[in-house]
Structures are given as C-alpha cells and as structure tokens.
Design a protein around this nucleic acid. Structure first.
Lengths: 200, 200
DNA sequence: TTTATTCCATAGTGATCGATACGTATCTTA
DNA sequence: TAAGATACGTATCGATCACTATGGAATAAA
C-alpha cells in the first residue's frame, strides 16, 4: 500500500515542533500576553502559514493546551492509575511540583496561568480552560467518593471540598513556582498540604 | 487657619472614586487585559486627565494595587492581630474566601490574578507583585517561627513549607473563585486545608 | 480686570495588534 | 510537459494599543 501524499507544495516546517514552540510561549506569557509576532519568531513560521496550519490565534492556543494536557503522563492517568485517592493526590501534587519547576520549560502551569486574567475579548477562552480544570477536579472528587464507598475514607469526608482543596493546592504551587520558589521547597509545600488528608 | 487651595481649575472628578473604579477593572481583567479605553470609560475621566492625575498606566495600576492591599483589614493586620499562627492562617483563609466571592466585586484576588501571566513588556510589574506576595509569605513564616519558639508548635515544623502552603492555598482559593465556585464551598475548602496544620 | 495657573476636551501620534490579499514557488497527477 | 493543488514570502489591512500636543475653560491671586 502506498503512502497517500497530498498534492501541492509540502509544508516547509514540522507542525508538531512549531506547535511545541507555541505551547512553550503561551506557557511563558499566557494567551493574550503572547503576540503573533512573538509566535512567528519562535515558531520560525510566517503569519500566513500559521493561519493556514492552525486557523487563528485562539485555535492555535487551544491546540497548544490540548497538547499540554495530552502528554504520556496526565492528570487523568495519574488519578486513574493510583490505588486510592490519597495516592492520586500525592502523585498529582508531586508531579505538579516537578513539572512546574522544569529547567527547560517555563515555570508554573500553563492551565493555571495562561488565562487567569484577560480582556473581555478572551472571556470564552478563559471559560474553556475553566471547564478543563473543573473536569480534573470532578475526576478527583470521584476518586475520593470511591474511597468513601470502599471504607478507605470515613463517611463524613467532604469529597467536594477535598477535591477543591487538591485543585487549589495545584494552582497555588503554580504561583509559587512562578514567583521563583525552588523545586525542593515546592515539594515540601506539597508534602505539608497532604497532611490535610483525612484518615480512617 | 485657612484651607490652602491650589490656584487653577479644580479637578472635575473625585480621585479616590476614579482610583476605585480602576482597581475594580484591573481586578476583573488584570493589568494588561485592562485597556486605557476601558479605564477612561469606567472612571469617567478622559485619557489626558488620567495621565495628569496618575502618571502612566503602570503607576495607576500600582496605585490601585496599593489601595487593594491597604484597606482596614489587610493580610498584615490579620496576621499581627492573631494570637498564634494557626489563628492567623485560619483568619487569612476565611477572609480570603469571603473577599474572593463578594457579590459586588470581581471574583478572586487582584494580587493573585492580575499579573500571573503577561507579555515580556510587563515583566517588571509582575516582579513587583511577586515581591508583595513574598512579603506576606515571609510574615506568615515569622508568625509560625514564633509559635515554634514558644512551644505552641513542635520544633520539627517546617515554617518555610507551612508558610508556602498557606500562600499556595490562598492563590488556589482565588482560582476556585474565578472558576465560579460558591463562597460556601470555598469556605469548606479553606477548612479542609487547615486540617494540614501541625499540632503539638 | 488682568495675569498666572491648572485642568478639560478634541483630536490626534507612532507602534503594535490579529489577520489577510496577492503573486510566486513547489509539489502530485495526468 | 501541462494542469491542478497547496504553501510560500512580501507587503500590507483596519483596529486598537498606550500616550500626548494643543487650545480653550475655570479657578486664585494681583
């Protein structure tokens, strides 16, 4: 079977690599803080090619976000693979602390920082990221509720508040990282946070 | 003694009221997300008058931030007035939960949201807000260290990590509020967080 | 009234924003 | 080699950005 090849002039850049550069820039400066001029420079692609390949700036950003949350290790997989909610929360916080302080990436969390505040024109983008955050929180809440049903956690546990607490801590770790805190300290903060976990 | 009155045409607007409107707008949309056009409309003051009264956009923003953190109830006073670190942290989190969900104010925390991500042009503003955040964290850390010295908290307590945890939680509550969580839930999250507090 | 001072309102400044029109180059297919 | 399709590079588009030059209006002091 032959490889189907589109007619016409081929792309002169690697779409994945260019998207990675865009993701990194959005991660660093946020959605509205990243200009198309900065994107063209970082991606090595002219504006018309970006628009042909990704649509407009909003679609490029959302695709970058999709790439950010679709790596081999995601919040989803961390939660699903953990034996219980405590292990899931610990893994989430530890992985966040590591991921927010990578030497070769921007500090903090793209999901937590890139549209926290923006002009009214970007309100819908802001809302879409909030939806993603809420889905993660809902998944944590389910995991906690599972533990309550199994008797791993006492029946009095407020799954809603505890899931919100885990999310809040992740967002907070992101800001600490943005403000320059070292990885080692953020890991200690995460550990201190897990002391809030209820026991049977 | 007579009231000294400047010569020349008097100001046609109330500087404090205008500053309040600016603060609210920055609180809502962040530093770079708030345009001067939006400010002139909300403040009811034309651009040249804003520049005459406040300098430039950066100075106006910093003055709005100064106003935000200089109310009758501030992080500083909450910490200083509390009998111990646990009470201080509880007061901080509860007050944050209330303040981030006011019906007549934007949601979340101006200090936590307005410059989390921004273009390289606003890097210095971003840094100045990070300094303010770090001062609050340092004050919390002192309060904790005091408790350790007094024996209120065990000597093994990591004051640095615990102070970072309180700050991280506040930032996280801000994002939860931004994402639409109700005040009642955020208060429960704050309560869940305080379960992490070490005891003697 | 005159003069000095200060502020307001109009109407812009150059720069940058996101996004695109247009003509040429490069590919597959026939 | 011709035809069709796709992407490239150049050179912009109108809108909006933060900001300001200029002249008239409103006040206090002389």
């Amino acid at each position: 079977m032959r490889i189907a090849r589109k007619p016409g002039r081929p792309l002169s850049f690697d779409r994945n690599i260019a998207l990675d550069q865009a993701m990194r820039l959005f991660w660093q400066s946020g959605y509205e803080g990243t200009s198309l001029g900065a994107l063209t420079k970082a991606m090595g692609v002219t504006a018309p090619s970006i628009y042909a390949a990704f649509g407009d700036k909003k679609q490029l950003f959302l695709e970058a976000v999709s790439r950010y949350v679709s790596g081999p290790v995601t919040a989803q997989t961390l939660i699903d693979d953990a034996p219980d909610a405590h292990a899931a929360a610990t893994a989430l916080l530890r992985t966040s602390a590591i991921g927010f302080t990578g030497a070769s990436t921007p500090r903090g969390c793209l999901l937590a920082t890139s549209t926290i505040s923006c002009s009214p024109a970007a309100a819908d983008v802001q809302r879409q990221l909030a939806v993603i955050r809420k889905k993660i929180e809902a998944r944590i809440k389910e995991k906690i509720a599972d533990d309550v049903r199994k008797g791993v956690l006492p029946s009095g546990v407020d799954a809603d508040a505890l899931a919100g607490f885990v999310m809040a801590t992740i967002q907070g770790l992101s800001t600490l990282a943005r403000d320059g805190a070292r990885r080692e300290k953020i890991l200690r903060v995460a550990e201190a946070a897990m002391a809030a976990w209820p026991h049977r």
